[in-house]
Design a binder for these strands. Structure first.
Lengths: 150, 150
DNA sequence: ATGATTTAAGAGTATCTTATCCTAATATAC
DNA sequence: GTATATTAGGATAAGATACTCTTAAATCAT
């Protein structure tokens, strides 16, 4: 998998939050139902985003989670780094430790270019950008539901 | 992980075979030692490449495995497809089934471009190309050994 | 034929990922 | 204060991936 399942869920949930431009907290239960993700599992994933500072949470009635910054300022890369770490930016296709320009493996050069391409895409795409596009074209957020269903 | 560990081992082993331009069979034991990969595990992975037709094997003394075609004709994509399957070419970043131009998710377009880039790199790189480059610059094939050690 | 060498195949183990469940802690509402 | 809503966190189980071990089958050399 290019992204772990946790990461995929984190991306969907982050986009969900960005698409609600209300300022209030959004319950994880609501998200888990709308996005069709196991509530307990999603809770754990969002806890991680909270501890990384991308989200803040509030307990009790009317509690939930929300983005700490505008969705405009949050890139997909930030979510991926928080959940999957930086393996995408550093991993060697031959599995060699410390692979880089100083001690390259035979595919290092081409592989690094490919990784840079992935990196650029993730860094240059914000949650808000996807949210706008999603709303405009009613794009899918679940197996059977469009953006405007959430 | 972008590639499974099995796939990483398969790539290293395939390159090893391509770099030996002898026509004979190469014992898996020799490869496992030179490449520092568990013999039994490597055996299983190469069995898969054999059943996919990329390698042919021969039992008994002077037995081993060898490429069925010239390394010139074998791309990295062929190895990746044989071991990891085509998830790289089809996987949706949101995990939605059947994601594509007809029913796209919000990142489908950008994600597809990124995947195409990976695909192109894997398809356009042959084992022989890497072998030549590896020999020329004595690039790494193991954690501590160069190409000319194998 | 016999024994050594080598791949094939399957069972078994360990570790990581994914997912579920239960209890605690915190906040609100009445 | 009591009940309710909600996140936090731990314990556990199921599944996938990574690896190990053992036995069988094929081939060669003598």
């Amino acid at each position: 998998m290019l992204l772990s399942k946790s990461c995929v869920y984190a991306l969907r949930a982050s986009l969900y939050l960005a698409s609600k431009n209300e300022n209030g907290y959004i319950p994880i239960r609501e998200m888990s139902e709308k996005l069709d993700i196991s509530f307990h599992f999603l809770t754990k994933i969002l806890q991680q985003l909270t501890s990384e500072g991308m989200l803040e949470s509030y307990k009790g009635p009317n509690g939930g989670v929300r983005l700490t910054r505008s969705g405009e300022e949050i890139s997909l890369m930030e979510v991926v780094l928080a959940i999957d770490g930086d393996y995408m930016l550093t991993e060697c296709a031959f599995g060699l430790p410390g692979c880089g320009v100083m001690k390259p493996c035979p595919i290092h050069e081409k592989w690094a270019e490919t990784r840079d391409n992935i990196k650029y895409m993730l860094e240059s795409t914000s949650l808000t950008e996807l949210s706008k596009k999603g709303k405009e074209f009613n794009l899918r957020m679940t197996a059977d539901g469009g953006f405007n269903d959430i």
